[in-house]
Design a protein around this nucleic acid. Structure first.
Lengths: 347, 347
DNA sequence: TTGTACGCGTTATCAG
DNA sequence: CTGATAACGCGTACAA
């Protein structure tokens, strides 16, 4: 292991000079700069990041905390796409990513505290936000650079990036209503997730606006995504007055729903229309292709990382203002809802 | 920021004693243990991981190096599934994951060197292996705990975990031949990837064994996965003597191929059979469901992480033996090749 | 422009 | 069982 001292000795200068060369200090003579660089070459020197971080009190890394529903989370294409956005900016800004998963709510808390106090990261990116999230408590107690992907349940002074999920739910439902549907089902993901609740909220808004009464039997939630969508659709189709359209609050749910409908011999969109959320790659590949609300996951990831790094860099300064950003949302119309054509409403 | 000294003062002991309590040193009186624990509570103390790592010369973290084809890599369901396996064991073993992406081959090298010498991680997991990989050079020069997911092109003394991809390719092709196919196409991913080459190799073996002549026109490679599969299939179907079956070396390629066939009005499996690799979740959901070689990605990730951590822990000791492990492979027969078992769940 | 000396927060060694 | 003291490798006032 070659250290800064070895280089110093080799170059005939002091360790501090080497340090300055490494960090591109301005006032250093070209000559010694060359000498030091040469010595570094010859010795194959690489600075010890740990020691540097300890001295500078900055880790040059951000933490990404994957929520306790780890397994489901990994399975959803949402995750890699978000991570892609995040890594795009961390790479550009010179930060590393520390990935932490946890099995339970308690572990979530511990992981977060370890990250915050362990000084291994300069800030943390929180993925997903749920009701009564114990993490929020931790954040309340310890001010620390954090960005939430989603929104906090209660008004908390923390930075977050989110979609306007209420509006997204509204738009999707509105689309179906516009196509003439009156009985519209709602397939939700984990009910504790705020995304689910917000999209459901939007669904209700659209229904109310159109004067369509809501029917509890038309709503079904499950945290098992594809499977949940499958089961939910089965249930909806079993109703005596089955829906002619379904809003699935996640593309995976929608795929499960489509699978169920297909197996029962219902045609999409002729017999039942489906709309999803997230607009994952698969939407265009499925048959029929899935109409979905694009929430721009990649953008979401980039924004979140950027906002976090901003905080990290301006910490301590006056600018302690928290920021909230809403990433726009966009309905992408494909074939799963049919066009303005004739729809068969036969039950 | 409360340090070990603060706790020491509060508890009326020396810093070293606190350190011992933290690390559960055996010979410490119950009494002082309680005092120290109390002080830690009251002060909300959390050890500084950086300082600890610096002193202990071990980072309690492993690096995961995502290859230069970052974007494609994130898009493939292979990635999150592998990561899930990795994180499963790192969590259990108390290691954190440092994710590093890079844009180019050069950056790959630098990232690796930074990780190795920067001491921020104790070992590195290399995902994917390609021809003439510059990373191998780095590994040759610096002995360091590394595990490769895949296999090195040349015989290098490094630990790796892989599938028997040659056999996998052989099995898939053999399956098609068994169903009576004689003209079988091959859709490959990035040609520089050893996976691609190995699976192609297996394809050739099966063909040779059956006495079927190979035809260059039946092989098409592209690193753009779904799109590549689409284009490749288009090309294959345009041939005067088109294939009746296709081996696609990745499920995504297979989906693209199926989409192309569908758009042109070919039925699967009646008109053309398709088999893929990886057995991603989507295989069962697609229509028709995709016959695919399960390579047990999750297992692959777990094994890789485990082997790496083993190395990390036994480094310096005599046991410097590198290990190679082959994760078994298994053809999962569904509907995209026909012939197989008749499944009845149609309405 | 460069060197000295000290601090960053812990752990390990060696006394006691 | 516990307490000094010296690393760990690097950054940075302060002085020269």
């Amino acid at each position: 292991m070659t250290t800064i001292k070895d280089v110093a000795a080799r170059a005939g200068v002091s360790p501090s000079t080497v340090s300055r060369v490494v960090s591109n200090h301005p006032r250093i003579s070209e000559k010694t700069k060359r000498q030091v660089r040469l010595a570094m070459e010859e010795l194959g020197y690489h600075p010890n990041v740990l020691a540097r971080s300890l001295a500078k009190k900055s880790a040059e890394a951000i933490g990404v905390l994957i929520p306790s529903t780890t397994e489901e989370f990994f399975l959803n294409p949402f995750f890699p796409e978000l991570l892609r956005g995040i890594s795009e900016v961390t790479k550009r800004e010179g930060y590393d990513i520390l990935l932490t998963t946890s099995g339970s709510g308690r572990e979530d808390q511990q992981s977060l505290e370890r990250m915050i106090h362990g000084k291994r990261v300069d800030g943390v990116l929180l993925l997903s936000s749920r009701m009564h999230d114990p993490l929020m408590q931790v954040l309340k107690e310890h001010p620390f650079p954090v960005t939430l992907v989603g929104r906090p349940e209660i008004d908390l002074p923390i930075t977050w990036v989110n979609n306007d999920n209420i509006d997204a739910g509204y738009q999707a439902t509105r689309h179906l209503i516009g196509l003439g549907h009156q009985r519209i089902g709602f397939l939700g993901g984990d009910e504790a997730l705020l995304v689910t609740r917000d999209r459901l909220h939007g669904y209700h808004l659209a229904l109310d606006e159109a004067g369509i009464p809501t029917d509890r039997r038309l709503m079904f939630s499950s945290s098992f995504m594809e499977q949940g969508g499958y089961m939910g659709m089965m249930r909806l189709l079993a109703l005596p007055d089955r829906p002619t359209a379904v809003v699935a609050s996640d593309d995976l749910l929608a795929f499960g729903a489509m699978r169920a409908a297909g197996e029962l011999g219902y045609r999409i969109p002729e017999d039942i229309a489906v709309v999803g959320f997230n607009n994952v790659k698969l939407c265009e590949m499925s048959n029929p292709s899935l109409t979905s609300v694009d929430v721009h996951i990649y953008e979401l990831g980039k924004k979140a990382a950027l906002l976090l790094i901003d905080q990290v860099r301006n910490t301590g300064e006056g600018a302690h203002a928290v920021t909230h950003e809403l990433v726009r949302t966009q309905l992408v119309i494909r074939h799963s809802c049919g066009g303005g054509k004739t729809l068969s409403y036969a039950p």
